Amino acid sequence: MLKETSVPRINARSYMSLYEENPSHNKDLITFAKLDFNILQKMHQNEAGGNTKWLRELDIHRNVPYPRDCATEAYFWSLLVIAEPKYSIQRTILAKLIICIAILDDTYDNYATIQELDLFTQAIHRWDIGLIESLPECMKVVFNVVVKLCDEIELETAKNRKSSLVIQYVKQAFFNFVEGYMVEAKWCHENYVPTYDEYKINGIETSTCPLEMTVLIALGEFATKDMFDWIFNYPKVLKAASLIARLRDDLGTHKFEQQSREHIASAVECCTKQYDVSQEDAYKLIQNEIEGYWKDINEACLINSDGIPNHVLDLILGLARASEFTYSNLKDDMVGSFEDKFSNGQLTKDYVVALLLDPIVP
């Protein structure tokens, strides 16, 4: 039996088993529920296979030796965000985006010099590979992977005659994202520990949520100038999801990153600095803030004072749920002892098997 989570697709499988154990269960209802689950699982299997083929055709791991192999984790993340059958395009492109984000993350964190990263960031800003002619070949490959993904998004949105509107926002979102990484790279290079408040402002971008939302909206029916402007103004609900993602990520990975390599101070170190508290107190403060951000999301979904389409709010909620699931795995019941399911595939193995490999026996 899988542990209960905040993700509906995971819980659906567990609830079916529990419901079937009830002597008064409706046999027709459980039969159709299993059939629906298995049909959708086949669709998800095909999508995951397509993404693996896409990555293999890019030959990224031969040309760029340093990034993580996270094709399965990337698709699984997209499945946590949006599982419904009619959103197949959004799901598959989101998975490709997550792969790109992981490659960029490793490029900014582990590979390039500060001078190389500065040129690379400028190239993304101007969308001009000519700016990085002097950089290592692998960084040119990374740039081209980003360009190819944007070309695919442009091709998809051209079907609805929205590509000219959409692509400018997607490119701007990519730049905003890598600019956030560039800020972190400079902090690390200068051994600068920002305040907690300063860190969170930049962390909205590095959380990846604004970029992911821009791409998801670009591929859907609500791709309008007003909707993109709403996202780029960072409304309260998007800030909340972004900071849940950023802070949960930091709680789950900061110990490993601080011990294994030179790395920017995480939210934990920034919090201990700003408030002059112990690491344990910083964990508690951050956990309390995360709970507050969840209240902001609940309020937005229940009241929706901005009149935002429910589907858009559901996407933001899905991003927050995916982050909560991925980074809130408390280890050994110790305060602040978290593990990262994205980087450690063993922690997601049972969930991947249940959602993508094993059908439910009728």
Rank of each mutant, 00 (worst) to 15 (best):
L319Y: 13
S328F: 06
L149D: 02
D340H: 01
R62D: 15
C70F: 01
N298F: 09
I290P: 01
S328L: 03
L117R: 06
A354F: 04
L29Y: 14
Y283T: 03
K331P: 00
W230T: 07
F175G: 00
S164L: 01
T253H: 04
I98K: 08
A322L: 07
F37K: 11
P309F: 09
C138W: 01
A185L: 08
L131Y: 07
Y327L: 07
E73I: 04
A158S: 15
E84N: 08
P65Q: 10
E198M: 04
K159A: 15
L18F: 05
D358W: 01
E198V: 02
M334H: 04
E339A: 14
V361W: 11
F256A: 08
Y75L: 14
S78D: 10
E152W: 01
N26H: 12
L2D: 03
S134E: 12
E221F: 00
G336D: 09
G345L: 08
K239E: 15
D314K: 13
S17E: 14
V146G: 04
H125K: 15
T348V: 12
I10R: 00
G307F: 00
K331R: 14
Q45M: 12
M16F: 12
F232Y: 07
Y169Q: 02
V141M: 05
R68M: 15
L55A: 12
V142K: 01
E190H: 10
K148Q: 11
T326V: 03
Y327W: 08
E205M: 14
L319M: 14
M213K: 07
H311C: 08
T52Y: 02
G336N: 06
L104T: 00
D333W: 02
I204G: 03
A74S: 15
D281R: 13
F325M: 08
E221D: 09
E20C: 10
K86A: 10
V145Y: 01
I60W: 04
I316P: 00
P23M: 01
T52D: 08
A173Y: 02
D249K: 04
L357W: 11
I290W: 02
I167Q: 11
C188N: 11
L131P: 02
E47G: 04
I290D: 02
Q172P: 00
M43K: 12
E57G: 00
V215R: 09
Q346S: 14
L216M: 15
D229K: 09
L29M: 13
L347F: 12
I217N: 13
V145M: 10
V353C: 07
D226S: 11
L35M: 14
K140E: 03
E137V: 06
E133N: 15
L285M: 14
P309N: 05
S14F: 03
A185H: 07
E291G: 03
L94Q: 08
E4F: 07
E339R: 12
D276F: 01
I89M: 10
L149K: 05
S266V: 04
S163F: 00
A245T: 15
C188H: 06
L251I: 09
L58W: 12
